[in-house]
Simulated scan of single mutants.
Amino acid sequence: MLEHLKNCSIVRTHSPLKYGGPWGKLILVGWIAGLFTFPEYYLKRGEASEEDLNNFPKHLRNKLVMLKRASFF
């Protein structure tokens, strides 16, 4: 996932979490899922790259959005 989102500053900022063990990786996936669930927010603030978001695999994007939405309830 990180390879597909190289130009997103929000992902680069949180990428050290991948070394934080299972909890760090889980938090990182949560950040990425939030990026795809609310892309307008991150695009407006300049923390996401529209090109990276469009080139991300659609099946994985859909799974991340479903994961994020399921965690709200």
Rank of each mutant, 00 (worst) to 15 (best):
P22W: 04
L28Q: 10
G34C: 04
L35G: 12
Y42A: 04
A48V: 04
G20S: 07
G46L: 07
F38K: 12
L43C: 01
W23A: 06
G46E: 12
E50R: 00
G30L: 06
V29A: 14
Y42F: 15
G30R: 14
V29N: 11
Y42D: 00
W23H: 05
L28D: 08
E50M: 01
S49D: 11
G30I: 08
K25R: 14
R45F: 11
L26S: 13
G21D: 03
I27Q: 10
T37D: 15
Y41A: 02
W31Q: 13
P22K: 08
L35A: 08
I32Y: 14
L35F: 13
E47S: 01
D52V: 04
E50N: 01
G46F: 05
L26T: 08
G34T: 05
G24P: 05
W31C: 12
A33T: 11
G20C: 04
L17K: 11
G46Q: 03
A33W: 15
K44D: 09
F38S: 09
F38Y: 15
S49Y: 01
E51N: 07
L28F: 14
L26W: 14
E50S: 00
I27P: 00
I27A: 12
R45P: 00
F36N: 08
F38D: 11
A33H: 12
Y41E: 06
L28E: 12
T37N: 10
E47I: 00
W31D: 08
F36T: 05
Y19H: 13
L35Y: 13
D52L: 03
Y42V: 01
R45L: 08
T37I: 09
G21V: 03
W31Y: 15
P16Q: 10
L26G: 09
S15M: 15
D52H: 00
K25M: 10
P16A: 06
S49G: 15
P16N: 09
F36R: 07
D52R: 00
L35D: 11
S15I: 07
P16L: 13
E40C: 04
A33R: 11
I32W: 14
L35W: 10
K25E: 14
G46W: 10
T37W: 10
G30M: 14
G30E: 14
E40N: 09
G24D: 06
L28A: 10
G46S: 06
V29P: 02
